[in-house]
Design a protein around this nucleic acid. Structure first.
Lengths: 137, 137
DNA sequence: TTTGGTGCAAAGGCTTTGCAGAAAG
DNA sequence: CTTTCTGCAAAGCCTTTGCACCAAA
């Protein structure tokens, strides 16, 4: 089935994990690449993609699909939701969790086997709100 | 601000809308292209993309971002959720709607202005369930 | 007519991958 | 040593776009 692979803790993998956990911005792969280059100038974009993929498949980090063209990554694997700013695309955390079992509800309405849900919000971030206000003044 | 544009009802636009509304599969742009070619062999993929974009920006259809690499489209603009099959990627409808105002809940927990939410499920479609069952037998 | 739309093909943006050398275990 | 990982560059996939011609209104 799924190919098992021994994971090695390379320097690259380690700093990728460290940087992602140190940050709460839900960076894209390229964001990470830019951050990482400061610490390890020769790291390659391919390595960043490969590791983010491996780490998220191992459940060590989360890959987010919050809309927009690029995937984002989150070092926080606890269950929580996200907001994406419609203006600048940045992503924030939201702690709301539905107060009842959405999967169970959904299961009543479909022939699919329901595994899990994802709740996401769109809105405008504080910084873009500010810019709007200034712009129209 | 947003550039206003007079929409013309071209033959292409019309059959795109017709086909999308006739189907409940939430097709990708390329799925639509393949379907449309049967009725209009010379239609171009670019035209399909352009029209799906225009129609969804006008609120006449919905562009879905349900995970996976390709966007999907839905001729049904009523508020409803979707399930994506983790096996084959197909997408189905779900009628569950949260019983209380999620936006309001979320707004309490963030500095973002919350506009709306999106609730999506992952699971396995009937056809893939069947295949699994047969495969392991 | 006027102006938006189409087909075609090329360009773009993000991600994946093949390969030879490097490094972890 | 053996096997996985890395950097690099090329390839891939989906989507967007420039352009000259076409067609709604």
């Amino acid at each position: 089935m799924t190919e098992e692979h021994k994971l090695r803790m390379t320097k690259q993998r380690q700093i990728i994990l460290e940087e992602l956990r140190a940050v709460k911005t839900h960076p894209t792969a390229d964001d990470m690449y830019q951050m990482l280059r400061k610490r390890m100038p020769k790291i390659s974009l391919g390595t960043v993609y490969r590791n983010l993929e491996i780490l998220s498949e191992s459940g060590i980090i989360q890959k987010l699909d919050v809309g927009g063209t690029q995937k984002r990554f989150d070092g926080d694997i606890s269950i929580h939701s996200h907001v994406r700013c419609v203006e600048c695309g940045c992503v924030g955390d939201i702690d709301v969790k539905p107060k009842y079992n959405l999967e169970e509800e959904a299961q009543k309405m479909t022939d699919f086997d329901i595994y899990r849900h994802r709740l996401e919000f769109t809105g405008m971030c504080p910084s873009c709100k500010q810019k709007k206000k200034v712009g129209q003044a």
